[in-house]
Design a protein around this nucleic acid. Structure first.
Length: 576
RNA sequence: GCGCCCAUAGCUCAGUUGGAUAGAGCACCGGAUUUCUAAUCCGGCGGUCCCAGGUUCGAAUCCUGGUGGGCGUGCCA
């Protein structure tokens, strides 16, 4: 919360106390929000809850509050409008407060002081020996963004790549290799080659179920812990995969604090099983070991050991929860995993609840929608499913970069360092598009819309940054010192300033709801307001006092856009 | 069958947890450049908030029942 907002709250709490409501009672009901129509005021208070608590009619209370808040150096006006009280800040105070905080990198615009929150974020988690395709992108970019948002708010964050490097999919791959594989081909281009083998396996396994039995045997051999051919192959493919994933991760500016994949829990699963068994909730059903969760309204039991003795996804996730609990002591564990796996996490949490483990409360599935593309009939369908072909993320990023290169050739042919900027803007466009809507919504991936860089898009916000940078560059002076600026010159910038004022709440809400799109929306709003402002308010041509004040505004807007984008994992260019 | 999710302008979506006259972008139409980047800006057009009940001072938002679409539903992840 900014100084400005704190000041207003304080005065309101005083006023309410004067009207007979204690500060502690009033505090939680004092929800200041931007009015629907900004012409009403800068912030508004709906007096409904407060009035109820005080046994008054909302319009009456609103009138009393408005009367009790006399203008001061910060608050310009408090006006009752029916059950609402609308407040206006003094223009100079608004500008000074917001711009000072931004330029001094004070919270909420800069990082907050360390809090007690410890957040584990389990994200990206691709399967080894498979291409990094479009389907992995959502978890990766949402997860990265949430890591950055929580860090910004002062939490200790552990970003974890729970690599899919164990289990049946990998065993199937191995089976394919043992049937049709060729060592020299494999060494030449391991990822490509393994993917082709995997496709062949999927096709052949449909007519030949014996392949799956074979795969199960290989998995057993791998899980035996012996140093055998299965283990050596696993090691080789894991190393190659990590190397291959590095490419997309670098392009998306993604880093992890831990890469503890499923295999990491290989020697920790027995302990986890023991813990479950000790609680007396483990049952044997059809040869498998399960925990039933009917009493929690979950119809399907959670399988923890297959009838052939091997473990499952759930077993490893359970071991991972215990490991994270004792290693990190997290207050929240977020799983950035597609909505289609909701049942899996309900079951995981259900087992922990049945075990009466307090950590259960920290476990939180953060689901998101699918990536869809249009099929030949113009209907939306799952992207990767088209003729079994995965779409490589690199290809999509390349396509966006190509398109940006073309636009640069049209709009700004003299631009230096075109390739680097095209990469920056193109990747930003894709990431921005992914983080634009609520995560539960499916991403409709349509090349035409995707590569139309007009309107509310990554390039739109990037472009705003570039324009602002350009003005600062051309000013040929450093940004004026804050105490030298006459903030009353920025009375015409109220719309920009009010959006800036919303930043803190936006980031806060994004963290609470695990919803980066709230931050995305804020960057769009800020870019929009500053674009509009610049049309009618020239900076460099203005007289000195005005010019200085506007330069400060421009620098603050640029910095806040850069901060907002950085919370999304995007770095905007200085020119474009 | 059962469970979960989604449904708001022609299209893609917001709507700050129940509040003021439901907002953007795209598309379409019209306009803005001797001045800091027109990847921009300004204006116009466009609504049975899926349907039917209910809760209350007040519902796009909460509840119940439908409809349509998606996802999931014990030895994959």
């Amino acid at each position: 919360m900014s100084q400005l907002q704190r000041h207003l709250r304080d005065r309101l709490l005083d006023a309410l106390q004067g009207l007979g409501l204690s500060r502690t009672d009033a505090e939680p009901m004092l929800r200041l929000e931007p009015p629907k129509n900004r012409e009403h005021g800068d912030v508004a208070l709906g007096a409904f809850q407060l009035a109820k608590a005080m046994g008054k009619a909302p319009p009456a209370l609103a009138a009393e509050l408005a009367a009790a808040i006399a203008p001061d150096a910060t608050v310009a006006a408090a006006v009752a409008a029916g059950p609402f009280v609308n407040f206006r800040f003094q223009r100079a105070a608004l500008a000074r407060d917001v711009l000072t905080d931004i330029l001094q990198n004070a919270a909420p615009y800069g990082p907050a002081a360390k809090s007690k929150e410890v957040v584990c974020i389990d994200f990206s988690s691709p399967n080894i020996a498979k291409p990094f395709h479009i389907g992995h992108m959502r978890s990766t970019v949402i997860g990265t963004s949430l890591c950055r948002i929580h860090r910004h708010l002062g939490a200790t964050v552990h970003g974890i790549n729970h690599l899919g490097d164990w289990g049946m999919p990998f065993a199937k791959m191995m089976t394919a290799y043992m049937h049709w594989g060729d060592e020299t081909e494999l060494q030449k281009a391991p990822m490509r080659y393994m993917f082709d083998l995997y496709k062949r396996y999927s096709k052949e396994a449909k007519d030949n179920p014996a392949l799956d039995d074979e795969a199960a045997k290989h998995f057993q051999a791998l899980e035996s812990g012996d140093d055998n051919k299965e283990r050596r192959m696993w090691q080789f493919l894991r190393d190659e995969s990590l190397k291959a994933f590095q490419g997309p991760y670098e392009r998306l500016s993604v880093t992890f604090d831990a890469i503890t994949g499923e295999s990491f829990f290989e020697d920790k699963m027995e302990d986890a099983m023991q813990r479950v068994a000790k609680k007396g909730i483990l049952e044997t059903s059809e040869g498998a070991e399960v925990v039933t969760l009917k009493e929690q309204g979950i119809a399907t039991p959670c399988l923890l050991r297959k009838s052939d003795g091997t473990t499952l996804y759930h077993t490893r996730d359970l071991a991972a929860v215990f490991y994270r609990e004792s290693t990190y002591h997290p207050t929240r564990i977020l799983y950035i995993v597609g909505a289609e796996q909701k049942l899996h996490f309900d079951q995981l949490k259900g087992v922990l609840v049945k075990m009466k483990e307090p950590i259960a409360a920290a476990v939180e599935h953060v689901p998101f929608g699918l990536v869809l593309s249009k099929n030949d009939e113009g209907k939306w369908e799952k992207f990767a499913s088209r003729s079994g072909n995965a779409v490589f993320l690199d290809e999509i990023l390349d396509e966006a970069v190509r398109k940006v290169t073309k636009v640069i050739a049209e709009k700004n042919p003299d631009l230096e360092d075109k390739d680097r900027i095209a990469e920056q803007v193109g990747v930003a466009a894709i990431v921005f598009n992914d983080l634009k809507n609520s995560r539960i919504k499916d991403v409709k991936f349509d090349w035409e819309t995707m590569l139309n860089f007009e309107g509310e898009t990554g390039p739109y916000v990037s472009y705003a940054c570039a324009r602002l940078s350009s003005i600062l560059r051309k000013s040929e002076q450093s940004v004026p010192a804050i105490d030298k600026v006459d903030f009353s010159q920025l009375a015409d910038a109220e719309k920009v300033l009010l959006v800036m004022l919303d930043f803190g709440t936006a980031v806060q809400r994004a963290a609470e709801q695990s919803e980066p799109s709230i931050v995305t929306a804020h960057t769009i709003a800020l870019a929009g307001e500053i674009h509009s402002y610049l049309r009618d308010h020239h900076v460099l041509g203005a007289e000195p006092a005005v010019r200085d004040a506007r330069l400060l505004l421009v620098e603050a807007a640029r910095r806040l856009l850069v901060t907002g984008l950085s919370l999304l994992g995007i770095t905007p260019p200085e020119r474009m």
